[in-house]
Amino acid sequence: MNVEDYIIKTREYFHETPELSFKEYKTADKIEEELRNMGLTPKRTTETGVIADIKGNGNKTVAIRADIDALPVTEENKVNYVSQTKGVMHACGHDTHMAMLLGAAKMLIAEKENLKGNIRLIFQPAEELPPGGAVDMIKNGALDNVDYIIGQHIWGLFPAGKVAIYYKEMMANADEFDIKIHGRGGHGSAPQDSIDAVYITAHLIEMLNTIVSREIDPQEPAVITTGTVNAGYRYNIIAAHAELTGTVRTFSTDVQEKIIKRIKNILEGLKSIYGIEYEYEYKKGYPVLINNEKVSRIIEDAAEKIVGKDNIMHPKPNMGGEDFAYYLQKIPGAYYFLGGMNKDKGFDSPNHSPTFDVDESALYTGSKILKEVAMEILDRE
């Protein structure tokens, strides 16, 4: 079986057998089996995190990371490799990440005599579920003696074969908030005797939306999204309680802290005006992902050799979050997107969609880029 067929077959296996964050036991077993078949010696750094080294001819080490977890999504695709696990799906493309890294490993092993250093393969659990898997992988030695790290993410809204390069900021701080409003319930016919949690929550949502539009510099990226609202018992009962959750995305720590304080100030104002009580929890999630420009330019040069200059993109930073950011806080490295969309073949759903899928012709390209980038970093260092 040639490498391209191997990548596709392996990807389809992972797609059929997805596992949720921190529960990727069969996935990790399969990764270890494949690595052993290549003559490598994999080891677990966490329950489901796997690393393996390819020894070359030098002291420098480049790590390549792939995440391995799936999402709690019910797949709606009609393909022969559809998820066999009800309610779980590789809706973000981590199945392709594992397959492309395994494919790159085969290519790098074939080039072992020409490697001017070492390669560490990192298969990381739980990217999708904060606090994520990266922190424990790092704590347990995944980056020990590693000099550089790279990562590649398939992206469903970029055309297959395109590569998106980011020199500095790429992905945002990804935070979460949970707010509970406590009013006083009552009969729907007598609002004067109650404190309406639904009414006050509606005000709160409107006021949250004005923080970005009226209090943050328009040149500073920021997003506040209310994702869930739960309140009420019946059509003729004034709700005593309401809960809303949401996310805040920023690139600047100053903007992040301002938003945290302004949400608190708004809640204090509503308390003063309406007499409510409230609970407010703000959870800082993955930090902003900031690439090392030198490494990003090496990725660009290497990718250009494979896909051509016309297929290199430089989009604006993405407001999504990624725990690859933790690796970049420790050592130089960079992350980039590989396009997977092909509208003519029906692959045009965004990541995290129940119909997400990618043009598999992009995967061999992705493996070649990973291999070329790793070798180029070692050659230049």
Rank of each mutant, 00 (worst) to 15 (best):
residue 1 M to Y: 08
residue 5 D to N: 15
residue 9 K to L: 06
residue 12 E to L: 11
residue 22 F to G: 07
residue 23 K to S: 14
residue 24 E to R: 11
residue 24 E to V: 11
residue 25 Y to T: 10
residue 27 T to M: 04
residue 46 T to M: 07
residue 53 D to Y: 01
residue 53 D to W: 03
residue 59 N to V: 09
residue 66 A to T: 04
residue 79 V to K: 10
residue 79 V to C: 04
residue 82 V to H: 07
residue 82 V to D: 10
residue 84 Q to N: 14
residue 87 G to N: 08
residue 91 A to T: 03
residue 97 H to N: 10
residue 108 L to Y: 08
residue 112 K to V: 13
residue 113 E to W: 07
residue 117 G to Y: 13
residue 119 I to R: 02
residue 129 L to I: 11
residue 135 V to R: 12
residue 140 N to A: 05
residue 141 G to D: 00
residue 149 I to Y: 01
residue 149 I to G: 02
residue 156 G to W: 08
residue 156 G to A: 00
residue 159 P to T: 07
residue 166 Y to Q: 07
residue 167 Y to M: 08
residue 171 M to R: 00
residue 176 E to A: 14
residue 176 E to P: 07
residue 178 D to R: 02
residue 189 S to T: 11
residue 195 I to Y: 06
residue 198 V to K: 03
residue 198 V to P: 04
residue 199 Y to W: 12
residue 213 S to H: 08
residue 215 E to D: 12
residue 217 D to T: 11
residue 227 G to Y: 02
residue 229 V to H: 09
residue 230 N to Q: 15
residue 231 A to Q: 00
residue 231 A to P: 02
residue 234 R to T: 12
residue 235 Y to V: 15
residue 240 A to S: 12
residue 245 T to A: 03
residue 245 T to L: 04
residue 252 S to M: 05
residue 254 D to T: 15
residue 261 K to A: 12
residue 265 N to G: 14
residue 267 L to S: 00
residue 278 Y to N: 05
residue 278 Y to D: 04
residue 283 K to M: 14
residue 284 K to F: 14
residue 288 V to K: 01
residue 295 V to T: 15
residue 305 K to C: 00
residue 308 G to E: 08
residue 309 K to Q: 09
residue 313 M to G: 02
residue 314 H to G: 04
residue 315 P to M: 05
residue 316 K to A: 14
residue 317 P to Y: 00
residue 327 Y to H: 04
residue 329 Q to M: 15
residue 335 Y to I: 03
residue 337 F to V: 05
residue 340 G to N: 03
residue 345 K to W: 12
residue 349 S to L: 06
residue 361 S to G: 01
residue 369 I to A: 05
residue 373 V to M: 00
residue 375 M to I: 10
residue 378 L to Y: 00
